[in-house]
C-alpha cells in the first residue's frame, strides 16, 4: 500500500502565507481574510497582560467538544463560536514572532478558550529538553492563557536533528526516570501540571520491562501530570500490537484524564501480512473510535473536554463541527450519568 498519504501526525507543518500567485490555491491554511483582523497594538496589549498561573483560570477548557484550529476555519469559528467549546493549536505553528497566525489566534482567544498542544518538545528524548523551545512553549501558554498545555509520550529530536515524527520509547526504568525528569521541567516552566498523551504504537521493544499503562501510571504518580487519552491511539496500538483496547482502558489511570482526543486512521499491513493501523488524522472519526469513546466516558464517569483532530485532507468547518456535535452528544450522556 502506498503510504504517501498515510503519515501519522500530529507533526508540525509550516503555516505559509496564501499562495497569491497560484492559479488555484493549494494551501488549505493560507493567510486568512480580513474581517477578524485587529490592529497590531490591540494584539500586543491584550496578550502581554498578567496571565494567571492557576489551572482553573477563566480560560479553562470546558467539558465540551473542541477542534484543532486551522487558519482556514477562523472566519467560520468567529461567526459562530458557541458551536464548539474550545480550540486546540499545535504550539509549533504559533512560535513565530507575529503576523496573521497570532492575529487570528488573538481573535479566537477573545471568544473561545485555547488548549496548547506541543508536538516537538521530545519529552522521551535522551538529550536534555531544548530550553529555548520550552521557553517558547511557556510563553505561548502565558500569552494566550491557554486552558491546557499538553505534549506526547514520544521523542522527536536526536543530536540536534528534528525528525518531525513522534518516535516510541521503550518502557524501562531508565526511560521512566528520564520522562519524569523532563515532565518536572515542563511543569516548572509553565507553572502548572501538563497533560501527557498516550502514543500510537507500531512496534514494541523487547527491552521494555513494563507495559504502557503501568509506565504511564508511574509517570502520573511521580509528576502529578494529567493525561490526554487519545482514543484513536488506543485503537491503533491495540490492533498493531494484538491487544484489546478494552483491557488498555481498564488499566489506564482514568482519574488523571483531563482531555480526550478523537481522530481517524488508515489501514495497512506489515511485511508479515498482519494488520497495521496508521494514525493519520485524515478523515472522520471511525465507528470503532466512537464506540470506544463512549465506553471510556462510562468508565471515567464524568464529561471530559474532547478534541476532534483532523489534520490532513482538512474538511470545511461545517463537517468538522458535525463531528464535534457528535462528541458533545456523548458528553451530554456522560454528564447525565454523572448526575445520577
Amino acid at each position: 500500500m502506498d503510504r504517501t498519504a498515510m503519515l501519522h501526525p500530529p507533526f508540525a507543518s509550516p503555516i505559509a502565507p496564501r499562495d497569491g500567485t497560484a492559479p488555484s490555491s493549494r494551501s488549505e491554511d493560507g493567510a486568512p481574510p480580513g474581517e477578524w483582523r485587529r490592529d497590531v497594538a490591540g494584539t500586543a496589549t491584550s496578550s502581554e497582560g498578567e496571565a494567571p498561573h492557576a489551572f482553573a483560570a477563566a480560560s479553562a477548557i470546558p467539558a465540551r467538544a473542541g477542534v484543532g484550529l486551522k487558519l482556514s476555519h477562523v472566519d467560520a469559528i468567529l461567526a459562530d463560536p458557541g458551536r464548539i467549546g474550545f480550540v486546540e493549536i499545535h504550539a509549533e505553528n504559533y512560535m513565530g514572532d507575529g503576523g496573521p497566525p497570532h492575529r487570528a489566534l488573538a481573535a479566537i482567544r477573545d471568544v473561545l478558550p485555547i488548549s496548547l498542544h506541543g508536538v516537538g518538545l521530545s519529552i522521551g528524548g535522551e538529550a536534555p529538553l531544548d530550553r529555548a523551545h520550552l521557553a517558547r512553549l511557556a510563553a505561548l501558554a502565558k500569552r494566550y492563557e491557554t486552558g491546557l498545555v499538553s505534549e506526547h509520550l514520544a521523542w522527536s529530536t536526536h543530536d540536534g536533528a528534528y525528525f518531525n515524527d513522534l518516535l516510541p520509547v521503550p518502557y524501562t526504568e531508565a526511560t521512566l526516570a528520564r520522562v519524569v525528569r523532563h515532565i518536572d521541567q515542563v511543569q516548572e516552566a509553565i507553572g502548572r501540571p501538563m497533560l501527557l498523551e498516550n502514543p500510537s504504537s507500531y512496534v514494541a521493544f523487547e527491552a521494555s520491562t513494563m507495559d504502557e499503562t503501568t509506565f504511564i501510571r508511574r509517570i502520573v504518580a511521580a509528576t502529578g501530570c494529567g493525561l490526554i487519552l487519545d482514543i484513536n491511539n488506543v485503537v491503533v496500538s491495540a490492533v498493531n500490537l494484538a491487544t484489546r483496547p478494552e483491557d488498555y482502558l481498564a488499566a489506564f489511570p482514568l482519574e488523571a484524564v483531563g482531555e480526550i482526543h478523537l481522530a481517524g486512521h488508515a489501514e495497512d499491513r506489515d511485511a508479515a501480512g498482519a494488520p497495521l493501523l496508521i494514525d493519520t488524522h485524515d478523515g472522520p472519526v471511525p465507528t470503532s473510535v466512537w464506540s470506544l469513546y463512549e465506553t471510556a466516558l462510562q468508565h471515567i464517569g464524568r464529561p471530559v473536554p474532547t478534541l476532534i483532530e483532523w489534520d490532513a485532507n482538512v474538511p470545511d468547518f461545517a463537517t468538522l463541527a458535525a463531528e464535534a456535535d457528535r462528541a458533545e452528544a456523548a458528553l451530554r450522556n456522560a454528564g447525565a450519568h454523572d448526575a445520577r
Binding site: R3, T4, M6, L7, H8, P9, F11, S13, F163, N164, D165, L167, Y202, V203, A204, F205, E206, N240, L241, A242, T243, D270, A271, A272, A274, L276, I278
Partner: peptide, 22 residues
Amino acid sequence: VDGTGRPAADRLDVYRNTIVAS
C-alpha cells in the same frame, strides 16, 4: 517486535515514511 514477540523491524517503515514525507 510486534505485539506477539515476532521481529517486526519492517514496521519502522511507518516512521521512515512519515519523517521524509512530512
